[in-house]
Amino acid sequence: MLDAVRFSIFQWPLEACAAFFLLAGLLYPLTQWGTLPERVPSHFNFRGEPDRWAGRWIFGWFTVLEVFLYGMFSYQGHSLDYLLGAAQTLSAFTLLILWTKVVLTGLFAYLNWTIVRVARAQAAKANIPVMMLFSALLVVPVILLRVK
């Protein structure tokens, strides 16, 4: 059985990363709002090219989705319990939940940044290798935990 105590050293850094990505993903579009065109990309095809466009309101939906996912992963991973000192150990399952929260909030931050850049014509498309990296990062803890 995996030792739950040894995972607790990852709790604070991962929670801090998730909170940073959440704030970055939410605040960046707001700071750029005045320079955005009325239409922004809302979907990218498998080559990273924008194939659907929407109004700037799409950032509102992204915000709702990102905050919902962050909240659900925080609830399921008992983040508040740990931060308040009620939970003393971090199980392998909780580590997986926390890692997933970090990767998904990072992905949303990257998507918001990409949407802004493509909308302003600073980039022609989304960077597919970065998207593949986020996908690969989702399975890293599963592989590491299975190797043990």
Rank of each mutant, 00 (worst) to 15 (best):
L83W: 04
L65S: 08
I9K: 10
A18W: 01
V5M: 12
G106T: 00
P29F: 00
N127S: 08
E15L: 14
F59M: 01
V67I: 08
W53D: 07
Y28D: 07
A4V: 05
L98D: 06
E66M: 14
M132R: 05
L90Q: 00
G106Y: 00
F10M: 15
L84G: 09
L104Q: 09
F68R: 06
L144H: 02
K101F: 03
A86T: 14
A123N: 03
L14K: 00
V5N: 09
T89V: 12
V140E: 04
D81N: 08
N45M: 05
L36F: 00
R52P: 01
Q32Y: 04
F46Y: 13
F20T: 06
L80T: 06
E66C: 15
F44C: 03
L137E: 04
V103G: 05
V140G: 05
L90D: 06
V5K: 13
P50Q: 02
T31N: 11
W33E: 07
H78S: 13
E49A: 04
R120L: 10
L84D: 08
Y75T: 15
K125F: 10
R47K: 14
Y82C: 13
Q76A: 15
L90T: 02
S135W: 11
V142I: 14
A16G: 12
F21Y: 03
G77E: 02
K125G: 01
Y70I: 02
A19T: 12
Q76K: 11
P141S: 09
W33R: 03
Q76I: 13
L36I: 01
S135L: 15
H78N: 15
F62D: 14
S135F: 11
L95N: 07
R52N: 06
A54N: 01
H78F: 09
L144M: 12
G106V: 01
V40D: 04
F62E: 15
I115Y: 00
P129C: 07
Q76L: 14
T114M: 06
W53E: 05
W12R: 15
A119Q: 08
I58K: 05
G106K: 03
L96N: 06
R117N: 10
R56L: 03
L133I: 05
N112R: 02
A121H: 13
V140A: 07
S42Q: 08
L98K: 05
E38Y: 06
L30S: 13
L95F: 11
R6E: 15
F62T: 09
D51M: 12
W33N: 14
F62N: 15
A136R: 04
L90S: 04
L111H: 08
P141E: 09
F44M: 07
T94L: 15
K101S: 01
F134V: 04
L137V: 10
T100I: 11
S79A: 15
F93K: 13
V147T: 09
F134S: 01
L80F: 10
W57I: 12
A19K: 10
P50R: 05
Y70M: 02
Y28N: 09
L104M: 11
P37I: 12
R39E: 12
F21L: 06
E49Y: 03
T63E: 10
V139G: 10
P50A: 01
A4P: 07
L14Q: 06
H78I: 08
L137M: 04
A87M: 12
T100Q: 05
